[in-house]
């Protein structure tokens, strides 16, 4: 599903953001990616949806390789991978439903199925009642649900989430986590970057990878004795 092989990413000014990172995610696996600020979590997720390319090494995801996929083909990958971010990235001035409809429309959904599918997606994330509310009228937790609904328009095999609970209080965070767990239970792989150690501790069964200064320093699947990321 996801495989990083000796991935390094150097930035001209900031130096090495990722250093020889290798790991693998199986189908329908749920994994936390943790580490201090600046450890390379976002960089890893950006490489995984080909928003960025590794300096060396190879990223493979859903059958796409960073070595072989050209910029013109990225859209194919994006239809297999859902993305959510800490800052939601909804379109302002549009309702929750319009945000989902927009994603359906631009990925070629037919006119007649856009509305019913948008409604179904909003129901799936528990937002049926809020479909008509403008993005800026929603709470953080609700906005993130809209973002998740939008990420699901292509029925992706993988969900990549970069600190999806970073702007949410504990209750909203738990809500999003439960939503991810449901999606994962229905067969979607989830890779979630977070530095919320409490959240990680609350889900001890979920595999955790830890980055530190661009290096993979811990994998709970490899050393199951430890329950939290080292630090």
């Amino acid at each position: 599903m996801i495989k990083l092989t000796k991935v390094t990413r150097d930035f001209a000014r900031r130096g090495r953001a990722l250093d020889d990172v290798s790991f693998e995610l199986r189908k329908a696996e749920f994994v936390f990616l943790t580490g201090h600020s600046g450890s390379g979590k976002s960089t890893t997720l950006r490489l995984l949806h080909l928003a960025d390319r590794p300096t060396s090494g190879e990223v493979r995801i859903c059958g796409f390789s960073s070595d072989l996929t050209s910029d013109r083909e990225i859209w194919k990958l994006r239809r297999r991978v859902g993305m959510v971010f800490q800052d939601f990235r909804l379109l302002p001035g549009r309702t929750a439903r319009e945000n989902v409809e927009f994603a359906l429309e631009v990925t070629g959904a037919s006119r007649s199925e856009i509305l019913p599918r948008a409604n179904r997606l909003l129901a799936q994330v528990g937002l049926s009642a809020k479909g008509g509310a403008l993005a800026e009228e929603l709470s953080g937790g609700e906005r993130q649900r809209v973002a998740v609904a939008r990420a699901l328009v292509n029925e992706p095999q993988v969900l990549l989430a970069d600190e999806p609970t970073g702007n949410l209080d504990e209750r909203a965070s738990r809500g999003i986590m439960e939503l991810f767990r449901e999606l994962n239970a229905s067969g979607m792989a989830v890779l979630m970057a977070t530095h919320d150690l409490e959240l990680i501790r609350a889900y001890p069964a979920i595999r955790t990878l830890e980055l530190s200064e661009g290096r993979l320093v811990f994998d709970s699947a490899a050393s199951p004795a430890s329950t939290t990321g080292g630090s």
């Binding site: 990225i74 859209w75 194919k76 239809r79 927009f102 994603a103 631009v106 070629g108």
Partner: peptide
Amino acid sequence: REEIYIMRLVGATNGFI
């Protein structure tokens, strides 16, 4: 530009955008 970004993110083709 935000719309373009979202279109790219969810997998719209360049031609379509």
